[in-house]
């Protein structure tokens, strides 16, 4: 297995008022270039903590994260994050929000005109070029999340990190965005780690699903390879017995073996 991104024995302990809290324990996984990996688990199990460690926003107490055999321990645009609540800067327009990242990443390698072009290109990719001059307050939640994705993609990250990117959206908008993400993934072949708590979303989008056990001391319980052929179509999959089998396996893990004691 190749060594594009690897987490090796990652663990983290938070200092709290009630003493140390062991959030993650011995998380190890190797992710290949171009792979779409989702992490699923009950809320509070530490999914986001794993993502934040890879992003460099949190520092692991033990273990190491290697990207192309180099240790990552600080945030950077090579690991762009799509945040759950979009985190667009409300005083900038949609275009300016994306451009901010583009200017930062390609300050030396692209000319002004090229950066402008690249910003617009990424907005087109998420079908948001029509709202370029609007401010985040003027567009819907789904649109904001599209812009958040464009901002992350425009940084040409080595790994794209998505923290429950569709969690705050209604079901229809979510489906639209999932389709968009699949299209973009087919086109660009990004390496993606996505956090989710939605079983259908995990099976539909992933190459592998990493299932986390309940915290404290959460760790990887099981990894499921999703061998459904791409491109995937949600309607066709609804009839596909193999899809239901995979879905059943995730559900079995979440609701049988890892049922929260007091959910």
């Amino acid at each position: 297995m190749s060594n594009y991104l690897s987490l090796e024995n990652v663990g983290i302990t938070f200092k709290t008022q009630n003493g140390p809290f062991r959030a993650l324990d011995d998380v190890s996984i190797k992710i290949e270039k171009g792979e779409y990996v989702t992490m699923i688990g009950h809320s509070g199990c530490g999914k986001s903590t794993v993502l934040n460690i890879v992003a460099g926003l949190l520092t692991a107490t033990e273990g190491v994260v290697l990207l192309e055999n180099k240790e990552v321990n600080a945030p950077g645009p090579d690991r762009a994050v799509v945040f759950q609540n979009h985190s667009l800067l409300p005083w900038l327009t949609v275009y300016e929000n994306v451009r901010l990242g583009v200017d930062k990443v390609f300050a030396k390698t692209k000319s002004k005109a090229e950066r402008d072009e690249w910003t617009k290109h990424n907005l087109k990719l998420v079908h948001m070029e029509h709202a370029m001059d609007k401010r985040p307050g003027e567009i819907s939640g789904g649109m904001k999340q599209r812009v958040g994705i464009a901002r992350a993609l425009a940084m040409e990250p080595k790994v794209l990190l998505m923290d429950e990117p569709f969690g705050a959206l209604d079901a229809l908008t979510r489906a639209h965005l999932q389709d968009s993400v699949m299209e973009i993934q087919a086109e660009l072949g990004n390496t993606v780690i996505m956090i989710t708590h939605d079983v259908d979303e995990a099976v539909l989008l992933s190459d592998r699903i990493v299932m986390l056990t309940n915290g404290p001391s959460a760790t990887i319980g099981e990894i499921l390879t999703v061998d459904l052929p791409r491109p995937r179509n949600r309607l066709a999959l609804a009839e596909d017995p193999h899809y239901h089998h995979l879905r059943g396996q995730v559900l079995e893990f979440l609701y049988h073996r890892q049922l929260r004691p007091a959910a």
Binding site: A55, G56, P75, G76, F83, N85, S87, L89, K104, M155
Partner: peptide
């Protein structure tokens, strides 16, 4: 905190954070 996370991911410098995030926010 999200805005500061955005700044961290973009690796904005202290001055840039002040000018592009702190002041307008």
């Amino acid at each position: 905190k999200d805005y500061m996370n955005v700044a961290a991911v973009l690796r904005l410098g202290k001055l840039e954070i002040t000018r592009k995030i702190l002041l307008p926010a």
